[in-house]
């Protein structure tokens, strides 16, 4: 193994210190090193968006970020979206509207949608469709995903990630 680098990640409010190879992707650090397996990998060209997480409040494709680049950053993953057993409005809307089938793209889709609503709390259908074009879904044909995002936008609290203020 090549030289490792010390990295500190704040994931869903908790601090994690780890030693990583400089080439380790953030998505693998989250999944393999820290066990946040809700974030998925669907391609190797940053097209599918299954790996979308929030870094410092912005949606990033964590397959395109090195763990070392995320040193010191606040990361939110799908596991950080529900708090105290209360689903995030987007999670609730995806459930209500059948916005998922196999569920593989869903965490990335929800994280991308949350970032979209944070920037644009009342999007049109067209804005939702263009806002999610970096996330691929093969099951739903997008119909119910778009519906879910539009429905979530009508719900109070949909524009913030419900990240608990916890430090470990």
């Amino acid at each position: 193994m090549s030289k490792t680098v010390a990295v500190q990640l704040q994931v869903n409010g908790a601090t994690h210190r780890l030693e990583v190879e400089p080439r380790l992707l953030l998505v693998h650090a989250l999944r393999d090193n820290l066990g946040f397996t809700g974030t998925h990998v669907g391609c190797d060209t940053s097209n599918c968006g299954a790996c979308t997480v929030h870094m410092e409040g912005r949606a990033v494709k964590s397959c395109t970020v090195l763990a070392v680049q995320a040193d010191g950053a606040q990361i939110t993953t799908i596991e950080g979206m529900a708090s105290d057993g209360q689903l995030h409005p987007l999670q609730e809307a995806f459930w209500n509207d059948h916005g998922l089938q196999c569920g593989y793209c869903t965490p990335g889709m929800i994280m991308a949608a949350a970032a979209l609503l944070a920037e644009n709390p009342n999007p049109t259908e067209d804005e939702v469709r263009h806002g999610l074009e970096g996330n691929l879904c093969r099951c739903t044909g997008y119909h119910n995903i778009v519906k879910a995002v539009l429905d979530a936008a009508k719900t109070k609290g949909a524009t913030v990630a419900q990240q608990p203020e916890v430090t470990a």
Binding site: D32, T37, E79, L87, Q91, F94, W95, L100, T106, I110
Partner: peptide, 21 residues
């Protein structure tokens, strides 16, 4: 009816092959 599968999938708790080590 809403799907029984969804609560685990929308919270990142589904277990796909690469989630098993």
């Amino acid at each position: 009816l809403r799907r029984k599968e969804d609560p685990r999938l929308i919270t990142g708790k589904g277990t796909y092959v690469d989630d098993i080590n």
